[in-house]
Structures are given as structure tokens and as C-alpha cells.
Design a protein around this nucleic acid. Structure first.
Length: 80
DNA sequence: CCCCCTTTGAAGCAG
DNA sequence: CTGCTTCAAAGGGGG
């Protein structure tokens, strides 16, 4: 289950838009590091995922807006 | 210096 | 539209 043979596309060009979770992850990741400096990213992702589940739409709202802004940013990069 | 591990969301291709 | 696949962040750990 889960992991399948990823063929993996070549990493190049304008990076795809980050989702709301990516912004949330960055903030929580830093916050978790403050409390647990020995916490690895893989563990942080599990913790963050659990915290994301308890967020209300209102709390996700600012992250959703940032994701929308990145979508516009990406749309411009692609068009350029 | 690149890949893996991990999370969710979304891009984007395939049908 | 539906469904599957790949990348985005990111940092230790592995190679």
C-alpha cells in the first residue's frame, strides 16, 4: 500500500504551486523545531498532518489564500 | 550533491 | 469528469 515505483519526472522549470499545507507545514515545522530541536522532518510531517486535521476552514483560510496567490504566481511563470 | 522518508493538496497526464 | 501519478517543502539519514 502507499508507495509505488515512482518514475520521477525531471526536476526543472518553474516549481509547481505549493498547497495550503505546504505553508502550514513550514510554520509548524519551525515551531516544532523550537520545542523539539531533535525532531526529524519525517516525524514533523506526521505531527503537522495531525494538527492540520483539527484546523477549521477559517484557520485554513489564510493558507488557502496563500496557495491561491502561489497558483497565480505559477500561472504567470508558466505563461512567461 | 541526489534520493529517501513523510505529510497534504494540487498539477497534470491518461482514460 | 474520474482516476492515477508526480512534485511541491524540507532536513536528517543514506549513498
Amino acid at each position: 500500500m502507499g508507495k509505488v515505483t515512482k518514475a520521477k519526472a525531471p526536476r526543472d522549470g518553474p516549481k509547481r504551486p505549493k498547497s495550503a499545507f505546504m505553508y502550514f507545514s513550514s510554520e509548524r515545522r519551525v515551531a516544532l523545531r523550537e520545542g523539539k530541536p531533535n525532531m526529524t522532518i519525517t516525524e514533523c510531517s506526521k505531527i503537522i498532518g495531525g494538527e492540520w486535521k483539527v484546523l477549521t476552514d477559517e484557520q485554513k483560510q489564510p493558507y488557502a489564500e496563500m496557495a491561491s496567490k502561489d497558483k497565480e504566481r505559477y500561472n504567470d511563470e508558466k505563461a512567461a
